[in-house]
Design a protein around this nucleic acid. Sequence first.
RNA 1: GCCCCCAUCGUCUAGUGGCCUAGGACACCACCCUUUCAAGGUGGCGGCACGGGUUCGAAUCCCGUUGGGGGUGCCA
Length: 468
Amino acid sequence: MTGPRFRIAPSPTGYFHVGGARTALFNWALARRLGGTFVLRIEDTDAERNQAEWTQGIIDALAWIGISSGDPHFEGPYFQSEYAEAHVAAAQQLVAGGHAYYCDMTAADIEARNKVEGNQGYQGWSRDRGLGPGPGHVVRFRVPAGTTVVHDLVRGDVEFDNALIEDFVLLRGNGSPMFLLANVVDDMAMRITHVLRAEEHLSNTPKQQMMWEALGHPSPVWAHLPLLVNEQRKKISKRRDKVALEQYRDEGYLPEAMVNYLMTLGWTPKGPEIQPWAQMEVDFLLEDVTHSPAFFDLKKLAAFNGEYIRMLTPEQFAEACRPWLLADDAPFPADRFDEAVFLAMAPHIQPRCVTLADAAGVVDFLFLADPVVDEAAWAKTFGAGEAVAVLREAVVAYDALPEWTADALKGALETIGEGHGLKLGKTQAPVRVAVTGRTVGPPLFEALEVLGRAESLRRMRAAEATLG
RNA sequence: GCCCCCAUCGUCUAGUGGCCUAGGACACCACCCUUUCAAGGUGGCGGCACGGGUUCGAAUCCCGUUGGGGGUGCCA
């Protein structure tokens, strides 16, 4: 690959953030379309435990949204921790070139001096003290006078007055590199040409740009994406929001739906909102990215998911639902599940699901030895009018039915309803509750057809017996 | 505090000076369809934050105000 080089640089925190996923998708679209490269770098400088596991988690999460490490445009993962020497070397290079200097002041020293002088922040006090390395000595960047203009592909030129940027720390007192430095050095090492990241990094961009220049490299193309926020309009965070991509996956969201929804946050697909990835990849343009923060709306995500579930063929739907259908906590034992029955009912189940996890609850009565009876539904249905009589007549009629088909079942019940002056909506209720245990569910006659004559009648008779 | 970003229906957005009586989608409401619940169809509700300019003409350009957010660490 010779084209532009993009990157995402997640830290291994144990899950992959939906905001990170959106950023990854924007990078991925561009890397693919422009014949470039998408670099994955794990920023693991602080991570102490389970590094391999967490890294795999990130790779799996990316794969789930279609960013495959097997794709020729994918490169990595690289690990920031493996570049520690380069980070230190870069800091030393900056010191040697006069762009950085050692400082021995602690946070307490700085606070104390500011109290006396009535200042705020670090005032460059050690700039000309000629200090060398030593225990507890940090390396600070010598911010030059003037202004720094960040050319941002989504926001245009953003100007910063260098006088307002303090001489920030590059290397801690223990010699370890700070994020800002490590980030720049890694991007340089990986020959990154385009940095697309969330807007929270915009304020620190002039510092990084100054480092690129001081290190003798032209800075990359910057593009800061609008933040994803919660209903309080604050950036979504693990603390207060559901941000783990894995959690949505586990709850039964389809990756295509998640990808499509994420792409609409800060960008608008050409034509209809529901759009295949291949098309979005072709249409995506940084210039079209919105500037304002976007609310991560679960309701809209759910709507997208329902839309995508309905687009599935019955076979794809069954396949996608399998993990929930056969799970230990499914409403029925795995060995009672019947694929053929599920497949037959699938077209009726799909429009009733928001997530794949919903399916099991919709079809449970088909695979349970006996339906779980909703007491309130039972009482309400059989407490009124001719419900019991209807059920009795239905048992007789169904027992004598020549053909056990949905149409025949419906016809027979309609006839019974007419005898009582009831509409089909009312007439089907007693049968539905007897067979499924509930007043709501998938179309009754289709369900009876797949359940079979023997089992359907057994349940209806059992209900009859209970009713006395 | 200071710096930076942002500002169209509740939400995501279309809109780049006349095509805007501001369009779509989600949500919400009503009706239709109907075998319950969904799905689907039709319709409705609902917005250019405010104040000044510029212009024949402003949602669109400029300034200010207000509001929201982000940053400002020997966190990432």
